[in-house]
Write a protein that binds this DNA or RNA. Sequence first.
DNA 1: GAGCAAGTGGAACATCTATTCCACATCGCT
DNA 2: AGCGATGTGGAATAGATGTTCCACTTGCTC
Lengths: 205, 205
Amino acid sequence: MRADAERNRERVLAAARDLFAEQGLDASTNEIARRAGVGVATLFRRFPTRDDLVGAVFADRMSAYVTATDEALADPDPWHGFCGYIERVCRMQADDRGFADVLTLTFPTANALEDDRNRAAEALGVLLDRAKESGQLRQDFTHQDVPLILMANAGVVTATRNAAPDAWKRLVGFLIQAFAAEAAQPLPEPPTPRQMYRALMRLSD
Amino acid sequence: MRADAERNRERVLAAARDLFAEQGLDASTNEIARRAGVGVATLFRRFPTRDDLVGAVFADRMSAYVTATDEALADPDPWHGFCGYIERVCRMQADDRGFADVLTLTFPTANALEDDRNRAAEALGVLLDRAKESGQLRQDFTHQDVPLILMANAGVVTATRNAAPDAWKRLVGFLIQAFAAEAAQPLPEPPTPRQMYRALMRLSD
DNA sequence: GAGCAAGTGGAACATCTATTCCACATCGCT
DNA sequence: AGCGATGTGGAATAGATGTTCCACTTGCTC
C-alpha cells in the first residue's frame, strides 16, 4: 500500500472514531470523509461496506471489552470483580455512543468483532460462576442478563449523554444492588440465549 | 368539517397509531398516508406538523399514563401501588414502541401532552412520598429516577421487542428489588430535575 | 340539481442518505 | 527524470425522506 494511501486510511479511521463516538453508529459516510479531509471515494475504496469501517474503528475498543472480562477475573474478590466489570462496560458505553450501539447490536458490526464477542462471552461465564460460588451474586443471575443491562444502559446513555452524563451511574448503582444475593427475590424468567442472540441481531421470534 | 374529511382524519389517526406502535415515532408520513388509504396532502392538511399528528395519536394513551398514577394512588398498599405503577408504565412502553419514544422524549411531542405530563408528575410525587413513609420504598429514591427507569426500559424494549418480548419484565423485576428499602445501599447522586428535563428535551448541559 | 367551498390524490420539490464512476494527480520504482 | 500502477476528489446516481402544490372531485346548502 502506498504511503499516502495508508495516511488517508488512518485519517478516515480517526474521523470515523470521533464521529461515531459523538453521534452513534449512524453518522453519515459523507460527513466522515469530509471530517477526514478526503473524498468519499477514498473512504469507500478502503472500506467497501459500512461494516468494514465499523469493524476497523471498533476493533481496539472491542478488544478492550474482551480485556475487561480478563481484568475482572484477575480481581481476587469475585463480587468486586463482577461489579467492576459491569461498571467498566457501562462506562465504555457512556464514553462512546457508537460503542454503545455496537455492543447492543450484533448485526451491523463486522464479522471480525464476532470472535472477540465470543471470547468475552466465555470469560464472562467463568466470572459469573465464580461470583455465585462466593455467595455474593444471586444464583438466578444468568449470562443473558448482561446484554440486558447493556441495552438498558444504552437507553439511559442515549437519552442523557448531553444533559446528565452521569445518570447511567445511578442506574448501574440500582442494578448492582439488585444483583446482590442477599436482596434476591423471585424474578421473571430471563430470555433464552437464542432469544437474546436474535434480539441482538434485531430479528423476529 | 365535512363528513368525508372527518372520516379520513380518523383513518389517518388509526394508521398512524398502528405504525407508531410497530415502528416507533419515526414511521414515515408517506407510509402512514398509504396505510390509511389517503394522499399525503390529506394527512398534512389535518396535521400540519409532525407534532400535531403525534399529539393527536398519543392523547388517549397519555391520559392512560396519567390515570396510571391515580390508580396507583387508589391502591391501599403504598408499596404495591408503587410497584404496580412501574410495571404498568413499562408495559405500556413494551406494548407500543411509539409510546416508549413519547415518554422518554419530550421534544417531538405536541404541547397538548405537556399538561398531562405535568399532572402525572404531581400525582407521582404523592405516590413516592406515601411509599417512602410506609418504609418500603428506599428513602433516596427520587422523582428523577422514574424517567431514568423509562429510558432504561425503552432501551430494552427497543432491542428485544421482536425476539424476546418479555425481557423488559426481568429488568423491571431487578429494578423493583433494588428500590426496596431493605436492600438500600448508598447510591450515586440522581440527576437534578433540570438535567432530567433537559435530557428529555435532548438538549445539552 | 347547481354551485362553490372544502377536500382530495399524487406528482413534484427539497434534502438527506449510501454508493459508484471517472478524469486527473501522485507515488515510488527504475 | 519518467512512467505506470495506484490513489484521488467530487460530481453523479439511486433511493430514502418530509413537505408543498395544484388540477380535479366531492359533499352540502340553497
